[in-house]
Amino acid sequence: MSTATSAFPLATPGAGRLRRLSTFLWRHSRLFTLLLLLPPLLWLGIVYLGSLLALLAHSFFRLDSFTGQIVYEFTLATWYELLSQPANLDIIRRTAGMAAAVTLACGLIGFPIAYYAARFSTPRGKALFYLGVMLPLWSSYLVRVYAWKLILAKEGVISWAAERTGTSWLLDALLSLPVVGGPSLSISYIGMFLVFTYIWLPYMILPTQAALERVPPSLLEAAADCGARPRQTFRYVVLPLAFPGIVAGSIFTFSLTLGDYIIPYIIGTSKLFLGQAVYIHQGTAGNVPLAAAFSVVPIVIMAVYLAVARRLGAFDAL
């Protein structure tokens, strides 16, 4: 007996407090899980949800326009102010429209890239793909946005190229379009749209690619075997199975566009976007209640968006 235990010195009982603790945790795995989850739960619960609720609560206070002080009484006045002024509604409509356009563009550009990476690329090609998609995320967001400002500016490379190729008339026609046009690409919705699409594209490609990756090739063969032409296989098999990934990507692109205030500030016109409105109202104007109400808007829009996506069955395949 004693020789048997000495052959396995690690199995000797009662060696050290640490081992007893680990044995205790192994026996009480629920307690262990709780201990692991406690820090993130506290973080999410108090720091994140708490501040979100504080924000929500602030939107039900109001700013005394005479004293500039916040009146801590329940009122719907701030919400009324938000939803009754056409300028505010314009901001919401403008931002939501831009977010929708950017999401659509990211989906259209991102899907073929994700599809190629998931279906056809070699392991080496896939590594290059990840690198290519992620690389822009390694450099500063501000640097990339300012780089785009230089590209899009009147003296920028696009104008220069248009001049050299004799297509300036095309650029001018584009810029003379009502609403989306402007004096130059860097001061127009078109330019802003281009930059948004570029900046958020990786967030669309990666989840879409992950979803496509999970579609076994035998399903495509099975579809062809049953007589489905490539178009039908795509429509009835590939797209429905990739849909949850596309929706996940669109949640990213849509909500990131809704909340961003730097790109509209650097690239856009003087017309405000949601993020800018929040920034201005809580900063210079000191109207925290209105800023809070503004910042609830994207949350509501996203909730509606998710509900619609769910109705469409986006999460059925999860």
Binding site: L219, L241, D316, A317
Partner: peptide, 8 residues
């Protein structure tokens, strides 16, 4: 061999 049924 793996049946390849359409999961959706």
């Amino acid at each position: 061999q793996d049946y390849a049924l359409f999961p959706h």
